[in-house]
Simulated assay, not measured.
Amino acid sequence: MIYSDLIEKIADKNVNVNEFAKAVLHDESTRVEVIKQLLTNNNIMVYYHCYYIISRASEEKPELFYEYWNDFVYLLDHKNSYHRDIGLTIIGNLTKIDENNLFSSIFPKYIEHFNDDKFMTAQCFVKNLKNVVRYKNEYIEQIIKLLVDVEKICIYPKKQKELLKSDIIEVLDAVYENTTNKDVIVDFIRSQSTSESPKTKKKVKQFLKKHGL
């Protein structure tokens, strides 16, 4: 595929993400080019669609993207919050195959995004923690401590903070059976039963019912 044609197709608002994800997985030259566009193209329709494609592909075969680890780490400090989202998501996917334990050196930087300048990036961070706790059990207790301290750490307006707690509850639910700090989790979640966020209150009810509390 001629790369100018590839970029044009990726930029299309109706881009077929699944089709491109398959191409990225099965053709190295396409994979290299899509990653290049993800990292360097300034057109949001290009780099953000590349994000969808690489995110999908790296969920299926993260080992194909491990060599680009440092490139994705670089995005965590990007001035554009969309690029920080990209770094958070793809690194989260790559924790599954992090055989060299590269995540250990960036953990402090990664969790800084719990209080990112952009609220949506903080949401992205929390959602991607589900992969981190699934594949990096050694961080479970630290992550629990971080999340239940949301009121002190995050500076967002109350309405946003209450919404963020719905995502936090999902992560705490994911680690609940693998922690000795169940009481800490339950106390935090019970305290959200009067949240002004309907989504968060719903998550509280679901968690308590699931675990017979």
Rank of each mutant, 00 (worst) to 15 (best):
I2Y: 12
Y3A: 06
S4E: 13
S4N: 10
S4Y: 09
D5P: 04
L6K: 04
I7D: 00
I7C: 02
K9V: 02
A11M: 07
K13T: 10
N14T: 08
N14Y: 10
N16S: 12
V17F: 00
N18T: 10
N18H: 12
T30K: 11
R31D: 07
R31H: 08
V32E: 15
E33Q: 15
V34L: 10
I35P: 03
K36M: 06
K36G: 08
L38Q: 04
L39H: 04
T40I: 09
N41T: 04
N42F: 09
N43D: 15
N43S: 13
V46R: 05
R56Q: 10
A57H: 00
E59L: 09
E60K: 12
E60L: 14
P62R: 03
F65V: 07
F65C: 05
E67M: 08
Y68I: 09
W69R: 05
F72S: 06
L75V: 07
L76N: 03
D77T: 13
K79L: 14
K79I: 14
N80A: 13
S81E: 14
R84V: 15
I86Y: 11
G87R: 06
I90E: 06
I90G: 04
G92A: 10
I97L: 08
D98R: 07
S105F: 03
I106W: 04
P108A: 01
K109V: 07
K109Q: 10
H113D: 08
H113M: 09
F114D: 00
D117P: 00
D117R: 09
K118W: 05
F119W: 13
F119L: 01
M120H: 14
T121C: 11
T121W: 09
Q123A: 10
F125R: 00
F125N: 00
F125Y: 12
F125C: 01
V126A: 01
N131P: 02
Y135Q: 02
Y135E: 03
K136D: 03
N137I: 11
E138Q: 12
Y139K: 02
Y139S: 00
Q142F: 08
Q142V: 05
I143T: 02
K145H: 13
L146F: 04
L147D: 03
D149L: 09
I155H: 15
I155M: 08
K159I: 14
K161E: 08
L163C: 10
L164A: 10
L164G: 08
D167N: 15
E170S: 14
V171T: 12
V171I: 15
V175Y: 12
Y176S: 11
N178T: 10
N178Y: 15
T179W: 04
T179V: 06
I185T: 02
R190H: 10
S193M: 11
S195V: 02
S197N: 10
P198Q: 04
P198L: 07
P198M: 04
T200A: 06
T200S: 07
T200Y: 01
K201Q: 12
K201H: 04
K201N: 08
K203W: 04
V204F: 02
V204Q: 05
V204D: 02
K205N: 11
K205A: 15
F207P: 01
F207W: 02
L208P: 06
L208N: 04
K209D: 11
K210C: 08
G212C: 14
L213R: 11
